[in-house]
Write a protein that binds this DNA or RNA. Sequence first.
DNA 1: ATGATGCTCTTACGGTGTAAGAGAGTCAAG
DNA 2: CTTGACTCTCTTACACCGTAAGAGCATCAT
Lengths: 234, 234
Amino acid sequence: MATRHERAGLSREKVLDAALELVDQVGVDGLSMRKLGAALGVEAMTLYHYVPNKDALLSGLVERTATRAFTVDPAAGWQAMLRGFTAGFRRELLAHPGVVPLVATRPVTTPSALRELETAVAILRAAGFGTREAFHVVNTVATFTTGHCLAEVDPPGAAPPALAVPDPAALPHLAEAVRDGLGTPADHEARFAFALDALIDGFARMLARRSPDEGGRASTASAQGDHEGGPASA
Amino acid sequence: MATRHERAGLSREKVLDAALELVDQVGVDGLSMRKLGAALGVEAMTLYHYVPNKDALLSGLVERTATRAFTVDPAAGWQAMLRGFTAGFRRELLAHPGVVPLVATRPVTTPSALRELETAVAILRAAGFGTREAFHVVNTVATFTTGHCLAEVDPPGAAPPALAVPDPAALPHLAEAVRDGLGTPADHEARFAFALDALIDGFARMLARRSPDEGGRASTASAQGDHEGGPASA
DNA sequence: ATGATGCTCTTACGGTGTAAGAGAGTCAAG
DNA sequence: CTTGACTCTCTTACACCGTAAGAGCATCAT
């Protein structure tokens, strides 16, 4: 039995790293200070020198995830900006399925997140949206992405619920859809793209209605390169 | 000290009722079997004769809420159907803010929910959408509503986070928006309507693109009475 | 060497979900 | 009414949780 009380060389960052990994393995309900300490080779109480309490630790997880996830390209047109933002958000959420319920539940007000929000709004304003509309647009795509990813990741600690072909002749459309791969990763991917196309197209039409000279040609749904930005601001 | 062991006259329904009320007061994290028992004038272990375990109790809460929330008018046109569905869903979620994180997290596969889903898809198919598209549409509005309501209700046990005017000159748009009521109930309401208009308009344009004879006049975003249904099926 | 400070530990307390079983309440058949 | 079967409620117990309090080793500045 060598010396006890050895230094473990921890840091808030390392604690958050280990917590993220643990949450992704056992789900947020499976995370406990004792398990996290064990994963770091340390007693539970030691963690309280790096984090004031468990709630702050969880907030740290969403802060970290949200900061990585919220990226807005200031040079992109408004449609490409929205696509890039949502794609990055979703990518980060799917990379850490365990924290999805956390980011969905806790409000994100990181300074960096607010800054990205500000530039996103600036892009939309420059494209012709009103301030209120611009916030609606950004918040809408954010909440949509959150809701979508919540449905896309499976519940914390259990295996996927199997979705056994539940319907003989009573639910014909559902039966057909399940047979055609409803609920598969490919289906989620397709639905995300589908919904984003519809949303952005709907936004474009609202924009066209308030400034008819610009929006008319935003008819094709999946705009790959959109450089319709007006007189750049911000 | 009268006789002990008196019958409390409970039932699974009454237990769920009390649980729902308790969750709405203290949040899902504040719910414990002992507190719930106390609220019903009974010891914690008694509850296990009406519910196999706490997880099943929580699932019962989402089942009940989801069953009340998922209502599809089979006679409505597809746009009115979607508006009615989302409005009812949101109304039920806002009526029980404590369970919103639960319904957002747990998959809903109630028989009644599947039936409503089936008729919603039938309406969309009759309107001209493909089967895959129809499921995408329904799932999209459902996940969007979930995500929106998650952001609309404030976190479980705490007071609203105050959102103190966070921005002097660094975040001008955000400052303006906060001053104009961003985050207020009215703002949430407006954003929900805004997003739903955009989404449905986007869907209508997809429909128009695959069957150009019908969708051309679906241009105004907020269609109040839409009776564009094709040859009724289902 | 001597503090001072930082990090880790042990111990303890009140809370949680729930397994096991004892014991009352209720009802049906004799 | 008596007897049993069954249903409901209780008590007890266990392992686990977050974390408050404080003891004590490790490291570094003096």
